[in-house]
Nucleic acid binder design. Structure first.
Length: 499
RNA sequence: CGGGAUGUGGCUCAGCUUGGUAGAGCGCUGUGUUCGGAACGCAGAGGUCGCAGGUUCAAAUCCUGUCAUCCCGACCA
């Protein structure tokens, strides 16, 4: 389409397609602040659906929610060495607490007399404030495990931002748990990783690789990091969630000890884990198409849109009546439904409008079909239309939604498999990543040296996305020779260009 | 922070070369038409042309400065 109604086609410019889609699907808007965005009602409804599903899973695994402050005293951030190095370069800092009228003219200036004794950092993540608090909460093994999650906003002053994928401020959840033993903390971090995998695959319909981060990619301050990695339609990897085993690093930095059953004083073991509004970006990049946003039914803000037709009063009375009845019955069945009664827009306009905004199914209620006692149901993922008798609609919709949920996952899974490659020579490896775009997941041998990983990244822009917990193929777990150095490698790891 | 580009009604952009009373399409408001894949007619509303300074009788247009945004890289969830 040459006008500005649609989005740039994916094969023309994937990046432009994504940017267009986020705006035109009404998910988010630009804000007055660089790198920050406004999440619009439709995008926020999607986030709320994600939150609800995840929160239920956290609760079901024994976690409770709490809330910690937005500000972190600068000194806290200094306490864990790796953590400082990871986050110091991207922090927003509060230095004053007051403005005053500019004595030289108009406007306001920062009041120099209102300088803070100690600067406050706007949290990039909350380990430090939380562990400073946990010190007071944990004395005995009886206080453990401590299983807390918080839903919050955080700020990371990134140089370059993209809506949902990387914004200066973003929304997320961060779980912070404390345990008596290494093994318990390990179990916790793996349990949450499984929650994330389940959520990604069963709710988002996004297949993911489950694995461990290499040393150079792990969280700043972690003992080790687990990750789920998805593959976008432009065959790049995207980290969709991480779960960290923090070992005793934060307990030592914040002096959090407990008295064991045996009476000894021990440092606590910790985990932290998070997913963010980046999941929305992931969802878009995996499922959406040139007509706009495609939302998996389980998370979609609008599962059914009903478009009644008719210009004259008499026809409208019929189509509106039927539509309202559908809406009431579907809502009673727990389905998120809207009736689009706007009178100025043509049906065709509404079809495109709701396809752009990711409505999963559409019921077209027109006078001609009603004469035959039927309506048309169209589904968003395949574009298929079917004629359904009026009294079968309420039963049929959930079937289509379930089928669409399964189909989105199956399609993405097939795409992942088709874009997962095994490479054994450097020449092939280098040429795969030579172009501008991604090259999918590439399983190759690596000698486990950070230096090697850095050299590979420098030459190809491909990074180690993860070391799969379960080999994708049994042969992936067999030893081999490093793709770059030829040194021994215990197993294949996953390389990709990443978002 | 480097490289590139752009700032003109809500949006997309024309006008600038060659200074002379701010335009189009979309959207918006009202109204009319028998609404099945982005309908059409009629009547309207809406802009100190990013900001500051300069040149000039006269600046969206020329000059200087400045700010901002976007895209590409380096950094990252």
């Amino acid at each position: 389409m040459s006008n500005n109604l649609g989005v740039t086609p994916r094969d023309q410019d994937f990046s432009a397609w994504y940017n267009d889609l986020v705006i035109k699907a009404d998910l988010a808007d630009d804000s007055a602040v660089r790198g920050c965005m406004v999440i619009k009602p439709l995008g926020y409804a999607l986030w709320e659906n994600m939150q609800r599903a995840l929160d239920d899973m956290f609760k079901a695994t024994g976690h409770v929610n709490a809330y910690f402050p937005l500000f972190i005293p600068k000194s806290f951030l200094e306490k864990e060495a790796d953590h400082v190095e990871g986050f110091a370069k991207e922090c927003a800092v509060v230095t004053h607490h007051r403005l005053k009228a500019n004595p030289n003219g108009h406007g306001l200036i920062v009041d120099p007399e209102a300088k803070l004794e100690e600067e406050l950092i706007v949290r990039p993540t909350s380990e430090t404030v939380i562990w400073n608090t946990y010190r007071n909460w944990i004395q005995s093994y009886r206080d453990l495990p401590l299983l807390i999650n918080q839903w919050a906003n955080v700020v990371r002053w990134e140089m370059r931002t993209r809506k949902f994928l990387r914004t200066t401020e973003f929304l997320w959840q961060e779980g912070h748990t404390a345990h008596a033993t290494y093994e318990e903390a390990e179990e916790e971090s793996r349990k949450i990783l499984e929650v994330y995998r389940t959520f990604a695959e069963e709710w988002m319909g996004v297949p993911v690789l489950v694995g461990m981060k290499s040393e150079n990619e792990k969280f700043a301050g972690a003992h080790h990091t687990y990750t789920i990695e998805a593959l976008t339609q432009d065959v790049r990897a995207i980290q969709a969630g991480t779960s960290h085993h923090l070992g005793q690093n934060f307990a030592k930095a914040f002096d959090v000890k407990f008295q064991s059953k045996e009476g000894t004083l021990e440092y606590v073991y910790a985990t932290s884990w998070g997913v963010s509004t980046r999941l929305i970006g992931t969802l878009i990049m995996v499922h959406s198409d040139d007509k706009g946003f495609v939302a998996p039914p389980r998370l979609a803000p609008v599962q059914v849109v009903i478009v009644p037709m008719g210009r004259d009063e008499e026809t409208r009375n019929r189509t509106y009546g039927v539509s309202d009845q559908f809406a009431a019955d579907l809502a009673a069945a727990g389905i998120r439904v809207r009736v689009d009664k706007r009178e100025k827009e043509s049906p065709g306009h509404k079809y495109n409008y709701w396809e752009m905004r990711g409505a999963c199914t559409r019921i077209e209620v027109g006078p001609r079909d009603l004469d035959a006692g039927t309506v048309i149901i169209a589904r968003r993922d395949t574009g298929d239309k079917e004629t359904v008798s009026v009294d079968h609609v309420v039963a049929r919709i959930p079937e289509i939604l379930a089928d669409m949920q399964a189909n989105l996952f199956a399609k993405a899974k097939a795409f992942n498999l088709a874009n997962t490659h095994r490479v054994d020579t450097w020449e092939e490896f280098e040429s795969m990543f030579a172009g501008e775009g991604g090259a999918g997941f590439v399983l190759a041998h690596w000698d486990e040296s950070i230096l090697t990983a850095e050299k590979i990244a420098e030459k190809t822009k491909a990074t180690i996305r993860c070391i799969p917990l379960e080999p994708l193929l049994p042969s992936d777990a067999e030893p081999g020779r490093c793709i770059l150095t030829g040194n021994p490698s215990p197993r294949r790891v996953v390389f990709a260009k990443a978002y």
